[in-house]
Design a protein around this nucleic acid. Structure first.
Length: 268
DNA sequence: ATTATATCCTGATCGC
DNA sequence: TGCGATCAGGATATAA
Protein backbone atom coordinates (compact mmCIF):
# COMPACT_ATOMS: atom_id res chain seq x y z
CA UNK A 1 0.00 0.00 0.00
CA UNK A 2 2.02 2.91 1.16
CA UNK A 3 4.68 4.46 -1.00
CA UNK A 4 6.67 7.58 -0.18
CA UNK A 5 3.78 10.08 -0.27
CA UNK A 6 1.56 7.92 1.92
CA UNK A 7 4.31 7.35 4.48
CA UNK A 8 5.15 11.06 4.45
CA UNK A 9 1.49 11.87 5.04
CA UNK A 10 1.25 9.55 8.01
CA UNK A 11 4.45 10.86 9.60
CA UNK A 12 3.43 14.50 9.13
CA UNK A 13 0.02 13.91 10.64
CA UNK A 14 1.24 11.87 13.57
CA UNK A 15 3.88 14.40 14.58
CA UNK A 16 1.60 17.17 15.90
CA UNK A 17 -0.60 14.59 17.62
CA UNK A 18 2.11 12.69 19.43
CA UNK A 19 5.41 14.60 19.65
CA UNK A 20 6.13 15.84 23.15
CA UNK A 21 3.97 13.24 24.83
CA UNK A 22 5.30 10.83 27.40
CA UNK A 23 5.26 7.24 26.23
CA UNK A 24 3.51 4.71 28.40
CA UNK A 25 4.13 1.40 26.74
CA UNK A 26 4.19 -0.56 23.54
CA UNK A 27 1.56 -3.27 23.52
CA UNK A 28 2.36 -5.99 21.01
CA UNK A 29 -0.55 -8.26 20.16
CA UNK A 30 0.84 -10.04 17.13
CA UNK A 31 3.49 -12.65 17.87
CA UNK A 32 5.20 -11.84 14.60
CA UNK A 33 6.16 -8.53 16.17
CA UNK A 34 7.29 -10.06 19.45
CA UNK A 35 10.81 -8.83 18.85
CA UNK A 36 9.61 -5.26 19.32
CA UNK A 37 7.77 -5.89 22.58
CA UNK A 38 8.65 -3.67 25.54
CA UNK A 39 7.42 -3.84 29.07
CA UNK A 40 7.82 -0.16 29.57
CA UNK A 41 9.04 2.87 27.74
CA UNK A 42 9.96 4.48 31.02
CA UNK A 43 7.90 7.58 30.45
CA UNK A 44 10.31 8.76 27.78
CA UNK A 45 9.10 11.64 25.70
CA UNK A 46 8.60 11.34 21.97
CA UNK A 47 10.93 13.80 20.32
CA UNK A 48 9.99 13.46 16.68
CA UNK A 49 8.20 11.42 14.04
CA UNK A 50 9.56 11.39 10.53
CA UNK A 51 9.75 9.42 7.32
CA UNK A 52 12.90 7.53 6.44
CA UNK A 53 12.54 5.93 3.04
CA UNK A 54 9.23 4.11 3.28
CA UNK A 55 9.47 3.77 7.05
CA UNK A 56 7.90 5.85 9.80
CA UNK A 57 10.43 6.46 12.57
CA UNK A 58 9.59 7.46 16.13
CA UNK A 59 12.47 9.08 17.98
CA UNK A 60 12.32 9.01 21.76
CA UNK A 61 14.42 10.99 24.17
CA UNK A 62 17.63 9.32 25.15
CA UNK A 63 17.46 6.83 27.98
CA UNK A 64 17.49 3.14 28.65
CA UNK A 65 17.15 0.94 25.61
CA UNK A 66 17.01 1.78 21.96
CA UNK A 67 15.94 5.24 20.98
CA UNK A 68 14.27 4.78 17.62
CA UNK A 69 11.26 2.70 16.63
CA UNK A 70 11.06 2.11 12.89
CA UNK A 71 7.78 0.95 11.37
CA UNK A 72 7.50 -0.31 7.81
CA UNK A 73 3.89 -0.43 6.62
CA UNK A 74 4.57 -2.69 3.63
CA UNK A 75 1.30 -3.48 1.85
CA UNK A 76 -1.53 -2.85 4.28
CA UNK A 77 -0.07 -1.15 7.33
CA UNK A 78 -1.74 1.88 8.88
CA UNK A 79 -0.79 4.00 11.87
CA UNK A 80 -3.93 5.49 13.34
CA UNK A 81 -4.12 8.03 16.12
CA UNK A 82 -6.59 7.22 18.87
CA UNK A 83 -7.30 9.71 21.64
CA UNK A 84 -7.80 8.43 25.17
CA UNK A 85 -11.37 7.26 25.63
CA UNK A 86 -11.87 6.18 22.04
CA UNK A 87 -12.33 2.44 21.60
CA UNK A 88 -9.58 0.23 20.25
CA UNK A 89 -10.61 -0.75 16.73
CA UNK A 90 -11.75 -4.33 16.19
CA UNK A 91 -11.49 -6.50 13.10
CA UNK A 92 -8.74 -6.16 12.40
CA UNK A 93 -7.39 -5.53 15.85
CA UNK A 94 -4.16 -3.56 15.91
CA UNK A 95 -1.03 -5.68 15.75
CA UNK A 96 0.52 -3.27 18.20
CA UNK A 97 -0.37 -0.14 20.12
CA UNK A 98 2.08 2.60 21.04
CA UNK A 99 0.49 4.22 24.05
CA UNK A 100 1.18 7.76 25.26
CA UNK A 101 -0.32 9.95 27.90
CA UNK A 102 -3.48 11.18 26.24
CA UNK A 103 -3.67 8.82 23.31
CA UNK A 104 -2.18 5.96 21.37
CA UNK A 105 -1.07 5.01 17.89
CA UNK A 106 -2.59 1.79 16.59
CA UNK A 107 -0.61 -0.27 14.10
CA UNK A 108 -3.30 -1.91 12.00
CA UNK A 109 -2.04 -4.25 9.31
CA UNK A 110 -4.39 -6.98 8.05
CA UNK A 111 -1.87 -8.70 5.85
CA UNK A 112 0.77 -8.63 8.57
CA UNK A 113 3.67 -7.90 6.23
CA UNK A 114 4.64 -4.77 8.11
CA UNK A 115 7.58 -4.63 10.50
CA UNK A 116 8.37 -2.82 13.72
CA UNK A 117 11.97 -2.59 14.89
CA UNK A 118 13.80 -0.86 17.72
CA UNK A 119 17.09 0.74 16.71
CA UNK A 120 20.02 1.84 18.81
CA UNK A 121 21.39 3.80 15.86
CA UNK A 122 19.34 5.44 13.17
CA UNK A 123 21.88 4.30 10.60
CA UNK A 124 20.58 0.76 10.98
CA UNK A 125 17.43 1.82 9.15
CA UNK A 126 18.90 4.37 6.78
CA UNK A 127 18.21 3.25 3.25
CA UNK A 128 20.96 2.99 0.71
CA UNK A 129 19.05 4.69 -2.07
CA UNK A 130 18.59 8.43 -2.60
CA UNK A 131 15.39 10.03 -1.35
CA UNK A 132 13.82 11.66 -4.41
CA UNK A 133 12.41 14.52 -2.32
CA UNK A 134 15.82 15.42 -0.89
CA UNK A 135 18.13 18.10 -2.32
CA UNK A 136 20.70 15.44 -3.16
CA UNK A 137 18.34 14.04 -5.76
CA UNK A 138 19.75 16.12 -8.60
CA UNK A 139 19.63 15.49 -12.31
CA UNK A 140 23.29 14.50 -12.15
CA UNK A 141 22.61 12.06 -9.31
CA UNK A 142 19.81 10.43 -11.27
CA UNK A 143 22.10 10.24 -14.27
CA UNK A 144 24.72 8.39 -12.22
CA UNK A 145 22.14 5.94 -10.88
CA UNK A 146 20.78 5.17 -14.32
CA UNK A 147 24.06 5.19 -16.21
CA UNK A 148 25.17 1.66 -15.40
CA UNK A 149 21.70 0.09 -15.31
CA UNK A 150 20.44 -2.19 -18.01
CA UNK A 151 17.12 -2.64 -16.25
CA UNK A 152 13.85 -1.48 -17.72
CA UNK A 153 12.75 1.89 -16.38
CA UNK A 154 9.79 0.58 -14.43
CA UNK A 155 11.79 -1.99 -12.49
CA UNK A 156 14.63 0.48 -12.12
CA UNK A 157 12.33 2.92 -10.33
CA UNK A 158 11.14 0.21 -7.95
CA UNK A 159 14.66 -0.59 -6.78
CA UNK A 160 14.97 0.80 -3.28
CA UNK A 161 18.75 0.68 -3.35
CA UNK A 162 18.78 3.35 -6.07
CA UNK A 163 15.82 5.60 -5.29
CA UNK A 164 13.89 5.13 -2.08
CA UNK A 165 10.17 5.50 -1.88
CA UNK A 166 8.80 4.92 -5.37
CA UNK A 167 6.38 2.01 -5.54
CA UNK A 168 4.17 0.40 -8.13
CA UNK A 169 1.60 3.16 -8.48
CA UNK A 170 3.95 6.11 -8.70
CA UNK A 171 6.41 4.31 -10.97
CA UNK A 172 3.75 4.14 -13.69
CA UNK A 173 2.57 7.68 -12.99
CA UNK A 174 6.09 9.11 -13.12
CA UNK A 175 6.93 7.41 -16.41
CA UNK A 176 3.66 8.57 -17.93
CA UNK A 177 4.34 12.14 -16.92
CA UNK A 178 7.88 11.86 -18.29
CA UNK A 179 6.47 10.39 -21.54
CA UNK A 180 8.84 7.45 -21.32
CA UNK A 181 8.08 3.86 -22.24
CA UNK A 182 8.37 1.72 -19.07
CA UNK A 183 10.29 -0.88 -21.08
CA UNK A 184 13.09 1.49 -22.01
CA UNK A 185 16.46 0.57 -20.58
CA UNK A 186 17.43 2.95 -17.79
CA UNK A 187 21.00 3.34 -18.97
CA UNK A 188 19.91 4.30 -22.48
CA UNK A 189 18.26 7.62 -21.66
CA UNK A 190 19.68 10.73 -23.24
CA UNK A 191 20.04 14.04 -21.43
CA UNK A 192 16.59 15.32 -22.33
CA UNK A 193 14.94 12.08 -21.28
CA UNK A 194 16.78 12.01 -17.97
CA UNK A 195 15.66 15.56 -17.39
CA UNK A 196 12.04 14.59 -17.97
CA UNK A 197 12.36 11.58 -15.66
CA UNK A 198 13.94 13.71 -12.94
CA UNK A 199 11.31 16.43 -13.20
CA UNK A 200 8.42 13.97 -13.33
CA UNK A 201 9.68 12.09 -10.30
CA UNK A 202 9.82 15.23 -8.23
CA UNK A 203 6.55 16.60 -9.55
CA UNK A 204 4.47 13.46 -9.12
CA UNK A 205 5.71 12.76 -5.60
CA UNK A 206 5.29 16.37 -4.52
CA UNK A 207 1.76 16.53 -5.89
CA UNK A 208 0.89 13.23 -4.20
CA UNK A 209 2.21 14.50 -0.87
CA UNK A 210 0.13 17.66 -1.27
CA UNK A 211 -2.90 15.43 -1.85
CA UNK A 212 -2.11 13.33 1.24
CA UNK A 213 -1.41 10.26 -0.85
CA UNK A 214 -3.35 7.82 -2.97
CA UNK A 215 -6.04 5.51 -1.67
CA UNK A 216 -6.33 2.80 -4.26
CA UNK A 217 -7.83 0.16 -2.03
CA UNK A 218 -7.10 0.61 1.62
CA UNK A 219 -4.64 3.34 2.48
CA UNK A 220 -5.69 5.49 5.42
CA UNK A 221 -3.86 8.40 6.96
CA UNK A 222 -3.31 8.94 10.69
CA UNK A 223 -6.90 10.07 11.05
CA UNK A 224 -8.35 7.10 9.21
CA UNK A 225 -9.07 9.20 6.13
CA UNK A 226 -8.30 8.45 2.49
CA UNK A 227 -5.86 10.30 0.26
CA UNK A 228 -6.94 12.43 -2.66
CA UNK A 229 -4.33 11.66 -5.30
CA UNK A 230 -6.32 8.75 -6.73
CA UNK A 231 -8.44 11.36 -8.51
CA UNK A 232 -5.31 12.56 -10.28
CA UNK A 233 -3.92 9.21 -11.40
CA UNK A 234 -3.29 9.31 -15.12
CA UNK A 235 -2.62 5.66 -15.83
CA UNK A 236 -2.57 3.41 -12.76
CA UNK A 237 -5.66 1.23 -12.56
CA UNK A 238 -7.09 2.73 -15.77
CA UNK A 239 -6.61 -0.12 -18.25
CA UNK A 240 -8.73 0.45 -21.35
CA UNK A 241 -9.81 3.92 -20.24
CA UNK A 242 -8.87 6.91 -22.39
CA UNK A 243 -5.60 8.68 -21.74
CA UNK A 244 -6.36 12.06 -20.23
CA UNK A 245 -3.80 13.63 -22.52
CA UNK A 246 -4.40 12.03 -25.93
CA UNK A 247 -7.46 9.82 -25.57
CA UNK A 248 -5.75 6.56 -26.52
CA UNK A 249 -6.66 3.59 -24.33
CA UNK A 250 -4.37 2.91 -21.38
CA UNK A 251 -2.55 -0.40 -21.62
CA UNK A 252 -1.68 -2.74 -18.76
CA UNK A 253 1.04 -5.38 -18.87
CA UNK A 254 3.32 -7.23 -16.48
CA UNK A 255 6.85 -6.25 -15.64
CA UNK A 256 8.76 -8.18 -13.05
CA UNK A 257 5.52 -9.88 -12.05
CA UNK A 258 3.76 -6.61 -11.30
CA UNK A 259 1.28 -4.49 -13.20
CA UNK A 260 2.53 -1.62 -15.31
CA UNK A 261 0.12 0.90 -16.84
CA UNK A 262 1.04 3.25 -19.64
CA UNK A 263 -0.19 5.15 -22.65
CA UNK A 264 1.68 3.84 -25.71
CA UNK A 265 0.75 6.92 -27.69
CA UNK A 266 2.22 9.36 -25.16
CA UNK A 267 5.42 7.43 -24.47
CA UNK A 268 7.95 8.46 -27.04
C1' DA B 1 24.51 -8.30 -12.15
C1' DT B 2 19.85 -9.19 -13.34
C1' DT B 3 15.79 -12.13 -13.58
C1' DA B 4 12.43 -15.38 -12.19
C1' DT B 5 10.15 -17.58 -8.49
C1' DA B 6 8.59 -18.51 -4.02
C1' DT B 7 7.42 -16.64 0.31
C1' DC B 8 5.41 -13.89 3.91
C1' DC B 9 -0.39 -13.05 4.94
C1' DT B 10 -5.38 -11.56 4.59
C1' DG B 11 -9.31 -9.65 2.38
C1' DA B 12 -11.72 -7.86 -1.54
C1' DT B 13 -13.35 -8.77 -5.94
C1' DC B 14 -14.47 -11.43 -10.15
C1' DG B 15 -16.37 -15.01 -12.89
C1' DC B 16 -19.14 -18.90 -12.97
C1' DT C 1 -25.86 -16.39 -2.58
C1' DG C 2 -21.86 -19.35 -2.78
C1' DC C 3 -17.29 -20.64 -4.01
C1' DG C 4 -12.81 -21.06 -5.84
C1' DA C 5 -9.47 -18.35 -8.40
C1' DT C 6 -7.16 -14.17 -8.75
C1' DC C 7 -5.28 -10.03 -7.41
C1' DA C 8 -3.29 -6.34 -4.20
C1' DG C 9 0.42 -0.09 -3.13
C1' DG C 10 6.36 -4.25 -0.50
C1' DA C 11 10.45 -6.63 0.07
C1' DT C 12 13.56 -10.52 0.65
C1' DA C 13 15.77 -15.00 -0.06
C1' DT C 14 17.06 -18.28 -3.18
C1' DA C 15 17.92 -20.22 -7.45
C1' DA C 16 18.92 -19.74 -12.39
Amino acid sequence: MPELPEVETVARQLAPLSVGRKARRLVVRDGKLAGAARRSLGGRRLESVFRLGKQVVFQFEDGAGERWLAVHLRMTGRLLWRADGEPVPEAPAPRAELAFEGGAIDFVDPRRFGTMTWLARLDEARPKGIDPTAPEFTLAALGRLAADSRQELKTFLLRQDRLVGVGNIYASEILNRARLDPRRVAGSLDEAELRRLHGATRAVLAAAIRACGTTFSDFQDAHGLTGRYQAKLRVYGREGEPCRRCGAPIVRFEQGGRSTYFCPACAE
